[in-house]
């Protein structure tokens, strides 16, 4: 099989485009697709500070590599999830990647900062392991970007991720989620802008790019992912794609071009500050603080309630008032 551009021996075949590339041409085409996504969706400006959410996997490291190669100001953010050897290895490859390129890696450890790890969250919370992991990532990425003065958070979501998410939302007719499934989520109400520059590229392409660039990434799958719904949707789409190459990209790009404008996001309640952490939310407490309290077995209370309780605890109260305040009878 020959490269479509230079006729050298091909190393990768892109069946959805009925084409194949040699190493050099593929790396160039890959980077061009990322640049095209960034330009088309006005993802980042030349002076923007970008925080790339990096997991140690092929997608996020490939993304970071391309952004750095483009001369953009891109720092990495690694979130330690506490998933044993898997997390240790993820942190190791991410730190090595940053060191080799002289890039800045910000590290947040979930247990050290927020008091729980993902295996514990999966056992003690009401959400699935993957759901609480996703919730934690979204919260920490936004918090770290806002506190660090970054303009944009970039994630390594690829075409397969986006097509599988769209399939899941369509099967359930989650019209509000469908309306919001864009490669760019603009900054709003304390939420930092989020972008997905790899959405034009398949998992095969991101893996091939990482391999051909000599990036040491974590090949192993997360040990907690078994039974994950997203994975089932990917398998279903891959079964269709094997018989009809191009279906996946037609589904997602057709959505972006023609269907997304037909869906309207529901009006959201007023954005207010979470009474526990101060980040943006629509209720008294944000979803992350509610999940965290449940995992830790804590009771969330507004600051004024907490202040009253602390003041009561500090005072020497008459016996009858102390009993009324919930203290032990003497």
């Amino acid at each position: 099989m020959r490269c479509r551009r230079c006729r050298d021996e091909a190393v990768i075949e892109i069946r959805r485009n009925n084409t194949a590339y040699c190493k050099g041409c593929f790396l160039e085409v890959f980077r061009n697709q990322v640049v095209r996504a960034i330009d088309t969706w006005e993802m980042v400006g030349p002076r923007d500070r970008i925080l790339v959410a990096v997991s140690g996997g092929k997608d996020s490291l490939a993304l970071w590599d391309v952004l750095l190669a483009q001369g953009l100001q891109a720092d990495g953010l690694y979130l330690g999830l506490g998933i044993g050897d898997y997390s240790d290895r993820s942190h190791q490859v991410t730190a090595a990647f940053a060191a080799e390129r002289g890039a800045t890696l910000v590290t947040v450890d979930l247990a050290a900062t927020y008091g729980f790890d993902i295996p514990t969250a999966g056992r003690k919370g009401s959400r699935s392991t993957c759901a609480v992991c996703g919730l934690s990532k979204r919260y920490v990425f936004n918090a770290a970007a806002a506190d660090g003065g970054y303009d944009v958070v970039a994630t390594g979501h690829n075409l397969d991720d986006e097509a599988a998410t769209l399939l899941g939302n369509t099967l359930r007719w989650n019209t509000d989620y469908i309306a919001r499934q864009s490669p760019v989520l603009p900054a709003a109400d304390g939420m930092v802008k989020k972008v997905k520059p790899l959405h034009r590229l398949s998992e095969l392409e991101t893996a091939a790019y990482a391999f051909l660039r000599g990036i040491d990434y974590v090949v192993e799958e997360c040990p907690l992912v078994e039974g994950n719904t997203q994975l089932r949707y990917k398998e279903a789409m891959n079964a269709i794609e094997a018989r009809s190459p191009g279906t996946k990209s037609q589904f997602f790009f057709g959505f972006l071009d023609r269907a997304m404008p037909l869906f309207t996001p529901e009006d959201r309640a007023e954005i207010v500050a979470c009474q526990a952490c101060g980040r943006s939310t629509t209720g008294m407490f944000c979803a992350f603080c509610r999940a965290r309290a449940q995992i830790l077995g804590e009771r969330l209370a507004p600051p004024e309630d907490r202040q009253v309780r602390e003041e009561l605890a500090d005072e020497v109260l008459p016996v009858e008032l102390f009993e009324h305040a919930g203290g032990p009878a003497t």
């Binding site: 997991s55 996997g57 993957c130 390594g156 998992e203 991101t206 907690l224 994975l231 990917k234 398998e235």
Partner: peptide
């Protein structure tokens, strides 16, 4: 032979 599919809560 190295799978390219990853699941869970990306990234």
């Amino acid at each position: 032979i190295r799978p390219v599919i990853s699941g869970g809560a990306a990234p």
